[in-house]
Amino acid sequence: MDIPQNLQRVQARLRSAEQRYGRAPGSVQLLAVSKTQPVEALRAALEAGQRAFGENYLQEALDKQQALAGQGAEWHFIGALQSNKTRDVAAHFDWCHTVDRLKIARRLSQQRPDDKPPLNICIQVNVSGEASKAGVAPAETAELATQIAELPGLRLRGLMALPAPAEGFSAQRRPLAALRELQQTLVSSGLALDTLSMGMSGDLEAAVAEGSTIVRVGTAIFGPRRAAQAQG
Rank of each mutant, 00 (worst) to 15 (best):
N6Q: 15
L7N: 05
Q8P: 04
V10F: 07
Q11G: 06
Q11L: 13
R13L: 07
L14M: 12
A17W: 01
R20P: 05
R20H: 09
Y21Q: 11
Y21V: 04
R23P: 06
R23D: 05
V28W: 02
Q29Y: 04
Q29V: 13
L30N: 13
A32C: 15
A32G: 05
V33H: 05
V33D: 10
P38K: 08
V39M: 02
E40I: 05
L42Y: 07
A44P: 02
A45P: 02
L46N: 02
L46A: 02
E47K: 14
G49K: 06
A52G: 07
F53N: 00
E55G: 13
E60N: 01
Q66A: 15
Q66P: 03
A67R: 13
G70R: 08
Q71L: 15
A73N: 05
E74H: 06
W75E: 04
H76A: 04
H76K: 10
H76M: 06
F77D: 00
I78A: 06
I78W: 01
G79P: 00
G79T: 04
A80N: 10
Q82P: 11
Q82M: 12
N84M: 11
K85M: 07
K85I: 12
R87K: 15
A90L: 05
F93C: 11
C96L: 12
H97L: 04
T98Q: 14
V99C: 10
D100N: 11
R101F: 05
L102K: 11
L102G: 09
Q110I: 07
Q110Y: 09
Q110W: 08
Q111D: 12
Q111S: 12
R112H: 13
R112T: 07
R112A: 03
N120A: 15
N120M: 14
C122S: 13
Q124D: 14
Q124P: 07
N126Q: 08
A131P: 01
S132V: 04
S132C: 03
S132R: 04
K133Y: 00
K133L: 00
G135D: 00
G135K: 00
V136L: 04
A137T: 06
A142V: 01
E143N: 08
E143W: 06
L144G: 03
I148K: 01
A149R: 08
A149E: 11
P152A: 08
G153Q: 04
R155E: 11
G158Q: 00
G158A: 05
M160P: 04
M160H: 06
A161I: 00
L162A: 07
F169T: 03
F169E: 13
A177P: 02
R180M: 10
E181I: 05
E181F: 04
L186V: 13
S188P: 06
S189M: 13
G190I: 06
L193A: 03
L196H: 11
M198V: 10
G199S: 01
M200H: 07
S201F: 12
S201A: 12
D203Y: 05
D203I: 06
D203L: 09
A209T: 05
E210Q: 14
T213C: 06
V215T: 08
V215N: 03
V217E: 12
G218V: 15
A220T: 10
F222V: 10
G223S: 09
A227E: 14
A228D: 08
A230P: 07
